[in-house]
């Protein structure tokens, strides 16, 4: 299953990067969203997908739980990427409003800078 999940993460990255290289601002942010999904899946897969109970201790003697550390890491990462994505969104919104374009090729600054 890890191999399939690796392929899935790879496809998320592929589509993410393809979106990242688009002209429209919104596509770029969609790309970053896909990239972070891919990264989270990547972390989870690397932690191992072996069988086991959820890491909530019900039976203190049993050790058959899934690895809790990647989950903690992913949780942190989800929150951070959410913060960044929302900031990006508002930034893109403002940039598009201000410059009356959301085309990256037209957002180049100017020669006097």
């Amino acid at each position: 299953m890890e191999i399939i999940m690796s392929i899935l993460a790879g496809i998320l990255f592929t589509t993410g990067i393809y979106n990242l290289l688009q002209k429209q601002l919104i596509r770029i942010i969609i790309g970053t969203g896909l990239l972070s999904h891919g990264a989270h899946l990547f972390i989870l897969t690397m932690g191992g997908l072996t069988d086991g109970k959820p890491p909530i201790l019900t039976d203190h003697d049993s050790h058959n739980y899934v690895d809790p550390l990647p989950q903690a890491l992913i949780l942190t990462s989800i929150v951070i990427s959410f913060g960044v994505t929302s900031l990006l969104l508002v930034l893109a919104y403002r940039a598009a409003k201000e410059n009356e374009t959301d085309n990256m090729d037209q957002l180049r600054g100017n020669d006097y800078e």
Partner: peptide, 12 residues
């Protein structure tokens, strides 16, 4: 993008 995605799959 396909190249990079494939690379990451291989790495994973």
């Amino acid at each position: 993008s396909i190249g990079f995605g494939t690379l990451l799959t291989l790495v994973a």
